[in-house]
């Protein structure tokens, strides 16, 4: 897949079909990748496709000018389509290089399972449904379902639906959907008071770095409500009440735009389980509106579209 990506990317640049290639290259730390944005065809040999391509690159499209050849996984492609629906990205300005995704490895799960931190691991190797982790020279085997991100376990559409070039054969979901709902199910098992206490504790840790918002492709507002001072909707200070309010409003704003890429939760430096909110919202949207994010670029955006027949007593 990597070879195909590199040759396709090179051809796109050489033929002048794109101004940039936007993909992933090896990160500076073990078992990481980092976004690679380049106009130089000599850089394409650095492009990689592996179980660590975590970033949702669609996030950057609203700030890029020109035509971009962009590498997307299933979830990313739906964020991208959602941006097209919202007129934030023109379809003609992107050449979509689709990665049929086999699920990404959640390093924090690996760290917990082996009791060592990322940089102390010798090797992580994915082979089919198995992941081999070598620590202190000893190789341990885990099923992918134990070490994949929750969002990957819950993923229904690992292969991009919208693409120009598909880089490999379509993949199927990991097939452990319930396992991807563990955090949400635990919360649903609580009584409201317990749930409130849970979120109060979680949001007490928030430092308002806004990484959750800034890595999110659906958070494309030029100026976020949280930064408005006249009127001041939310205090900028990191009090748990304001932190919670910020996240709740953000969640409502991305309803129908969130593709459950899980980047908010992964980016959070204080490990607030944000996906328990966003995935729940994703499912509520599905239930209420029979709508899934980013399925069809010709379909209107859920929250900005309105049919006369939908009129209720409240809105005339």
């Amino acid at each position: 897949m990597e070879q195909k990506l590199r040759s396709e990317a090179r051809a796109l640049l050489e033929q002048g079909k794109v101004d940039y290639i936007f993909g992933y290259e090896p990160g500076s730390l073990k078992f990481t990748t980092t976004p690679l944005l380049t106009r130089d065809k000599n850089d394409v040999d650095r492009l990689v496709v592996n179980p660590f391509i975590v970033n949702n690159l669609a996030k950057f499209l609203t700030e890029l000018k020109g035509r971009v050849g962009i590498v997307v996984k299933g979830c990313d492609s739906r964020s991208l389509v959602s941006l097209i629906q919202d007129n934030k990205v023109a379809r003609g300005n992107v050449v979509i290089l689709g990665v049929p995704c086999e699920g990404l490895i959640d390093l924090s799960k690996v760290e917990k399972l082996v009791g060592r931190e990322r940089d102390e691991l010798d090797d992580i190797l994915r082979e089919g449904d198995k992941v081999f982790v070598t620590v202190d020279g000893k190789k341990r085997e885990f099923p992918i379902a134990d070490v994949a991100f929750d969002k990957c376990l819950a993923c229904e559409l690992p292969t991009p639906k919208e693409y120009d070039i598909l880089l490999g054969a379509p993949t199927s979901p990991i097939g452990q959907k319930d396992a991807g709902y563990t955090a949400i199910d635990n919360l649903k098992g609580k009584i409201p008071q317990e749930r409130w206490e849970f979120w109060k504790k979680e949001f007490s840790r928030c430092i308002r770095c806004y990484a959750c918002r800034n890595v999110c492709p659906a958070c494309f507002c030029q100026r976020c409500f949280v930064e408005e001072t006249e009127p001041k909707w939310v205090e900028p200070t990191a009090n748990w009440q304001d932190n919670l309010l910020f996240q709740v409003v953000r969640n409502i704003h991305v309803a129908g735009r969130c593709s459950d890429c899980g980047e908010c939760e992964r980016a959070c430096p204080v490990k607030i389980p944000l996906r328990a909110l966003t995935r729940e919202m994703y499912d509520i949207v599905g239930e209420l509106f029979d709508f899934k994010t980013g399925m069809d670029k010709n379909e209107p955006s859920l929250m900005t579209h309105y049919e006369k027949e939908e009129a209720e007593g409240l809105i005339r």
Partner: peptide, 13 residues
């Protein structure tokens, strides 16, 4: 700056 997302992680931490 291309890949920076302008969050506060690096400065806050």
């Amino acid at each position: 700056a291309a890949k920076c997302v302008s969050c506060g992680i690096c400065t806050f931490l």
